Amino acid sequence: MKIRIEWTYKTPKGEETVFISEEMLAIKGLLIAEDLERTGRAKNIMFIDKFDSMWTIKELKGYLKGIETEPHNITVYFDGGFDRGTNSSGLGCVIYYDQSGKSYRLRRNAAMENLVSNNEAEYAALHLSLLELEHLNVHHLPVRFFGDSNVVINQMSGDWPESILSGWAERIDGKLQDLGIQAEFELVPRKANAEADRLATQALKGIEIIATSEMTTEL
């Protein structure tokens, strides 16, 4: 979760002004806020999330402690492919998340029949990623979704009018609400979505992949 810090600064002579920081990760913001608090000149320290909800230091500490052993800091990439010759679809999603001090990558794909277009396959891939988040027991957390489909990203962001595939959008919105997920959708170039695209292609070829691996940082 990303937040901004808002606090009142008071000089020794009693002059006051309010500062608001740039956006940063919650854990970093908490460290800075605690340091500000120790100066004795920062008052009324609050955190503001992307939904303009206000958090106290105590509330943010409790939130971060509560999610430490659960998946958090979640990023999802999704992609769908459609073969007109066989009317079959391949779905792929990659989920990055942190849990218990470690970082993980989950890869999942699936073949699907009875879809009618590449756009529908893209929606189905996004829905597949939500089912995986549900299996991970992700709930009431912010999640960033990245895809290369203008149709899906713009409609899920509310920037496009309803279409013949709006039923998928409603189904996805329903699942997001059930899980309490605060979704943020972002369009990325196909190159940046290569891993999810590869999973979708493998699904079209009958290669099923369900794998979770720990991410390591090489020095």
Rank of each mutant, 00 (worst) to 15 (best):
A110M: 12
H127W: 12
L126T: 10
E113T: 13
L106V: 09
L130D: 02
G101C: 08
E122L: 03
K102S: 14
R107Y: 02
R107P: 00
L130E: 04
R105G: 06
A110T: 02
M112F: 07
L128F: 05
L128S: 02
N109C: 05
H127P: 00
L126K: 05
Y104E: 14
V116W: 05
N114D: 15
A121D: 06
A110K: 09
L115S: 09
Q99T: 09
N109V: 04
N109Y: 03
L106G: 04
M112W: 04
L115Q: 11
L126H: 04
L106K: 04
E120V: 12
M112L: 15
E113P: 05
N118S: 15
S129M: 02
N109I: 05
R107S: 04
N118D: 08
Y104N: 11
N114C: 08
R105L: 15
E122R: 00
A110I: 01
S117A: 06
A111H: 01
N118C: 11
L106E: 05
H127K: 13
S117R: 00
A125E: 07
E120F: 07
A121Q: 05
E122H: 00
E113N: 14
Y104F: 15
R105A: 12
G101A: 08
E122I: 05
Y104C: 12
A110Y: 01
S103P: 13
L128M: 08
N114M: 12
E122C: 00
H127V: 06
R108M: 05
G101S: 08
Y123I: 03
R107Q: 07
L106T: 06
Y104V: 08
E120S: 09
N119V: 15
A121L: 01
K102T: 08
S100L: 11
K102C: 11
N114H: 14
L128Y: 03
Q99P: 09
S129T: 03
L115K: 10
N109P: 08
S100G: 12
A125F: 11
S117N: 06
L115A: 11
A125P: 02
L130Q: 03
E113F: 13
Y123T: 03
A125Y: 08
R108H: 01
E122T: 04
G101T: 05
